[in-house]
């Protein structure tokens, strides 16, 4: 099929090495510094809180939002993380998940709102999201390191690319699915478009938005191992160690840690979504 040769590889390399990196590396450096202090702050806070206190708070949250069963599971899960000695790793993974979910939501929800309001924006946003979700993460891992350096920041960026799309999609969907009659009624009562958005559309879209948040958190956790390939500490690093040492047991220890975190976070965020219904 090669009727002509398309030098995508060479062009990209020249573009990145000769123009993009020299031009923008200082700008990205400052983003990197800001995000890095954010990641460090969350990590240090999580590690500063005594494990017992953290467990207690989490169990209470789980109880409020998910009921007794979830509270019990949370207790067992936290006991597991402590007793197989992966507490610190879990908190590292959790802080990357928290930061990347935060970034995903701060950017994703407004983008979702705009694309629900405007079909032209939607036409640009949708293929971009498809691209973000399907481009294999290994493709942007190394560029992320070139821009942001090894460690938590690159991990957050890579996780953001993979995990933000559901937040955008579900916000968009939630707002678009607000019944026409409701909107007509509020317009008839003379609400401004600002009031319409914040008092009618967004509140009605909350369950859908929370479903998006939930998906974002789950996808962030699933990136934990890949994030460790660019120097993010945490459970992913435990799993990678087990792979290079052919240590099946260690792999299960780290892997189950990710599963425990995932189930707790999943049920809690689902609980928030249902309570607001």
């Amino acid at each position: 099929m090669n009727y002509f040769y398309f030098p995508l590889e060479q062009w990209t390399n020249t573009f990145v090495n000769e123009w993009f990196l020299p031009t923008f590396s200082s700008a990205f450096e400052s983003i990197s510094v800001v995000l890095n202090s954010f990641v460090d702050f969350v990590t240090n806070t999580l590690l500063f809180i005594p494990a017992e206190l953290f467990t207690l708070i989490l169990v209470l949250i789980a109880w409020r939002l998910g009921g007794k069963g979830l509270a019990f599971f949370t207790l067992i899960g936290m006991l597991y993380l402590g007793s197989v000695d992966i507490w610190e790793e879990s908190m590292n993974t959790l802080s990357i998940v928290i930061v990347s979910t935060f970034v995903s939501l701060v950017i994703g929800i407004p983008v979702g709102i705009f694309s629900a309001m405007n079909n032209k924006i939607q036409a640009v946003v949708r293929p971009t999201l498809d691209f973000m979700q399907t481009l294999p993460s290994f493709v942007y891992l190394i560029p992320a390191v070139l821009l942001f350096g090894l460690g938590g920041v690159s991990a957050v960026i890579a996780t953001f690319i993979f995990a933000a799309p559901p937040a955008v999609r579900m916000t968009n969907l939630g707002i678009r699915h607000v019944p026409k009659e409701v909107i007509e009624a509020s317009k008839a009562f003379g609400s401004t478009s600002k009031q319409l958005l914040f008092k009618v559309q967004l509140p009605l879209a909350v369950p859908s938005i929370m479903a998006g948040v939930n998906q974002t958190i789950m996808l962030s956790l699933s990136m934990a191992v890949i994030a460790s390939m660019i120097g993010a500490p945490g459970l992913g690093a435990t799993v990678l160690t087990s792979i290079s040492r052919v240590n099946i047991g260690l792999g299960l220890v780290g892997g189950l840690g990710i599963v425990v975190l995932a189930i707790i976070l999943d049920r809690i965020t689902q609980g928030i979504g249902q309570n607001t219904k």
């Binding site: 190394i142 350096g149 120097g231």
Partner: peptide, 19 residues
């Protein structure tokens, strides 16, 4: 020690060396 992978390490080195 910051661990990642061969590619990650080289990319980080390249970043620092270019500056």
């Amino acid at each position: 020690q910051v661990n990642s992978s061969e590619g990650g390490m080289i990319a980080e080195a390249q970043r620092k060396i270019s500056n």
